[in-house]
Nucleic acid binder design. Structure first.
Lengths: 220, 220
DNA sequence: TTCTTGTCACCTAGGTGTTAATAT
DNA sequence: ATATTAACACCTAGGTGACAAGAA
């Protein structure tokens, strides 16, 4: 079996309508797709991988008027999706189960000519990530008898591919939760008066907030 | 067969008497031990790994008077060395031969109690890195007949383990050749008058040399 | 209008030798 | 004296959304 990591964060995004940036060079997903695996054969070899399937046959646009996604026509021509094989593959069941399996190297692109092995997605289309665990047969074993893979789908990880964020609340949630976007945070949600004061002690780590407003709060 | 990458850089260090820093937290080697592999069976599995053996039974100290290493007694008690298995192991011969095999994740420590899997070395002792390629037998094959590994030793990669650099010329060569030490370079060896001038054009990338002397050269 | 692209300041994450303080 | 440690400024390397300009 298989359990999605950071499910509560995925849920938060899903409620707003998750958006993932696609760029020519390739952009990582946030949240990162991470799972915990259970019940694998310790000594058997497995490949683990991801792919992405269209949720429907539609093209969307974001209506700022109603703050929602509306259908904008039929989907652009669909290319059979690439598969991203986890770079640790193949590995023993013991390896996969003893730590979280993270797809943080996976990147999304809208470049149809991409030759970096990134996942190619159409912008303004909706996608469902899928996770696959493939059992690698030993040479001696008969591979015609049993199904050798299992697929897991987490509905809360579906998302709209975009070249720029449409829903401002998604932007704010990304900024609040992605460490790499810390530079855009107005105030650190972990900060409170006590924390701000503790930063002024010689042991507290100093931070430079670019916005003076967040520091003026101390004096008022 | 097997070929050492960056051999000329290793030679430069070896002529001065290579030193490698060991720290409690673990320090990478520089130059990084990297090799090119040839003649592996494309479809067979191999493990590749490194270990370090003492060059002799001596303890050294650096004589600043004579600018050379002198024997300072018998070696400290020797613990059988750890083995660093390349993280890509096991992999097919095709994988190992199609790109440079780099041990840039390998770290050296002087902490006898290290539990990060780093290589433990005695400071002020001399070591010889060794590189091993191990053939992984398929389950069906008889493993009692043939030797299943091969060891490569490059004499120019031997080094003295130190907690701080002793030979100032080694320090300077590290600073000149390791990108991460760029902050300690006095002037960029790639810079000449033409380069400095080209940097002043709007397309040239600006650099901030902390030493004003390197900029005063322009005016004189 | 709507969507895409490239550049940028600002981060995270971690690899350097330096330096001053400490240990032996 | 000699050797080790920990904090530090300064890098490499690369992941963020903002923004202005461009494309469809």
């Amino acid at each position: 079996s298989c359990q999605l990591e950071m499910k509560s964060l995925w849920d938060e995004f899903d409620e707003l309508g998750t958006e993932m940036i696609v760029t020519k060079a390739g952009r990582r997903m946030f949240p990162t797709f991470q799972v915990r695996l259970y019940g694998l054969d310790i000594n058997a070899d497995y490949m683990v991988m991801m792919d992405f399937v269209p949720c429907d046959d539609k093209r969307y646009r974001y209506s700022f008027h109603s703050s929602s996604w509306v259908v904008a026509g039929k989907a652009d021509p669909y290319m059979p999706g690439r598969i991203h094989v986890h770079p640790d593959s193949p590995a023993k069941g013991s390896q996969w189960t003893k730590q979280i399996v993270s797809f943080d190297k996976l990147k999304l692109t809208n470049n149809l000519m991409d030759d970096n092995g990134h996942i190619i997605l159409n912008s303004m289309h909706k996608f469902q990530p899928r996770f696959h665990v493939v059992y690698v047969y030993p040479k001696s074993e008969d591979c015609s008898k049993t199904q050798n893979y299992k697929t897991f789908i987490f509905s809360e990880t579906k998302f709209m591919a975009v070249t720029a964020y449409q829903n401002h609340r998604i932007t704010q949630l990304k900024i609040a939760s992605n460490p790499f976007a810390k530079g855009f945070r107005d105030v650190d949600p972990n900060d409170c008066m006590v924390d701000v004061l503790s930063q002024m002690s010689p042991h507290g780590q100093q931070r430079n907030h670019s916005r003076p407003s967040s520091l003026q709060m101390i004096g008022t």
